[in-house]
Design a protein around this nucleic acid. Sequence first.
DNA 1: TGAAACCGTGGGACCGCTCCCACGCGGCAT
DNA 2: ATGCCGCGTGGGAGCGGTCCCACGGTTTCA
Lengths: 349, 349
Amino acid sequence: MSSAELPQPHRTADVRRPTLNAVAARAGVGRGTVSRVINGSPKVSAQSRAVVEQAIAELGYVPNRAARSLVTRRTDSVALVVPDAETRLFSEPYFSEIIRGVSAGLAGAGMQLLLVLARDETEYARLAAYLSAQRVDGVLMMAVHSDDTLPDRLDELSVPTVLAGRRSETEPLGHVRADNRGGARVAVEHLLAAGRRVIGTITGPMDMDVARERLDGYREALKHAGVAVDEELIASGDFTEEGGRAAMRELLRRRPGLDAVFAASDVMASGAVLELRAAGRRMPRDVALVGFDDSIVARHIDPPLTSVRQPLEEMGRTMANLLLDEIAHRGTGRREVVLPTELVVRESA
Amino acid sequence: MSSAELPQPHRTADVRRPTLNAVAARAGVGRGTVSRVINGSPKVSAQSRAVVEQAIAELGYVPNRAARSLVTRRTDSVALVVPDAETRLFSEPYFSEIIRGVSAGLAGAGMQLLLVLARDETEYARLAAYLSAQRVDGVLMMAVHSDDTLPDRLDELSVPTVLAGRRSETEPLGHVRADNRGGARVAVEHLLAAGRRVIGTITGPMDMDVARERLDGYREALKHAGVAVDEELIASGDFTEEGGRAAMRELLRRRPGLDAVFAASDVMASGAVLELRAAGRRMPRDVALVGFDDSIVARHIDPPLTSVRQPLEEMGRTMANLLLDEIAHRGTGRREVVLPTELVVRESA
DNA sequence: TGAAACCGTGGGACCGCTCCCACGCGGCAT
DNA sequence: ATGCCGCGTGGGAGCGGTCCCACGGTTTCA
């Protein structure tokens, strides 16, 4: 009989939810008043507010986001963009912790989190247009590469954007990062304090800011302790296990007498461990080892790895806050926040 | 002069994007025609279509999602709900792989992924109302507990829902899961094939379907091989490292002569390794060990752990597809999909 | 040759909300 | 008393789409 018998593809269940109008009718007030109550406007009498709130409760009214967005031009949602190539890194606490921080930071403001995995280059290229098309109020980006221009494009389109980490020392956009330099410094100081003097380091790719910063921290610590920096003790990896292993091999070849290594990431450290073991070096007796990230592998490496921990969740929360701030008051000036790291001492050093 | 000088908090940049109207005007056709072109309706002449597409390209037009949602009552987005308590599991490939699969599956359909971390109980309780309030077209849920009623509530509110894993053998909702029983069986068969006969198992919490299924697989394999199941060789853990360790200790106490162990998760296996090592057992010589999940720790345990891998990404993609299907044709009947597992042989067994 | 069927098309109505203007009313100064 | 101010308040307009009806122009078939 009714059209209800016809299939209704692509239609949500037509259990029509109460509208603002319905609430107004029930409360015996105008739509404007209901809207004011919902949006916490002060220009409502206590009485009206009570009546409206009552009606809302009775009807189980929830505002329609689309209708609101349409007029306010806000979406109350932000996108978290992660290049898919890096998704594997998800497996590191890095992503999950940051995400939970972001989520916590956004929840308070009633913002939704849109997860966008940029699969291939094509998709990535379209992203700027896509994200600027009034779909989100702002964008958070993780794992930005030095040569990544998406942030700049978003900036041109005046889409509030906050990055996890910076692309270079002169990052123009707002971002949050850990004190990589300080963390590295503390790590190396820890090795120095244990009496180690021939300390090598395995760096990340030098076109990444984190890698440069951690290397700088290594240098600073040595310099500060009056130990000359031996360039032969610096080998570069690429943040992969195999890269770490190769770098370690190189270090052992160049300076067989080294007694400690600071690896700029736990994953590289785990590669180094394999090589050290193969070379018959015992840890920490012969060679002490410190990593960076305090990732999940740190605890499972044998011996458990001393590592530098970043306040990931706090970084996420801070990113959310910076973004919310930027959304609320545009162009309040870009801000960068650097959060402190912490050395987690285990058995490897 | 203009109002542009006034601060405009909470307003997106007023660079007004072209509307469908603008496109129509430029193309010299009516709004209806433009709408038809955008939605791929066949009832448009080739000529009109060409003109409209041209105009769209020239203006860089992108449809306004909110406006569309308002009338269609669709949002073209689905929520992925993850109880925050489980977020730590993010660090396992489990979540990241599933997410990437989900994302891939949704991307093809032009759907957005809303990540919802349900923090505390209160929030979790509100979620049903929230999610049913025309905010998403469907819901994907991970890490559902046996006593979780959110899925049922969503179902009542006729919100299409698909789960990762089932709550019990009689799960009424659509879901995707790995062949836990078969995987466990293959794992144990692998141990049997290596000549092991006194095979213990460390199970997960028995109120979880995965745990029960994996234990069943263990039993099946033994039975099939004509080996009597010794209940003393079954110890229960809780999917944590410490739980695995305790269970292993118990097994060694009960049956010091065991020559193999099947742990229902890699994390528990890593705990077992610690205990075995403490007890002076060498692996795999004295005791062979197989885990489940092929998580990141599996490769880093010493010796590298033989483990059962689940096709996580495919599970994610399948979840997305089931959900899309359910959204498009409601009530086409609940479906459950079971995907095969694979034994990854390393050095521990 | 005329009616019927069909096809692409334009545009009005509407989705549910916010914004803002105009209005009524009581209190205060004139 | 009369005017003015300010505070709630109601409701029209409009956000940018989709849906659907009505319309003119062909084609089809009796």
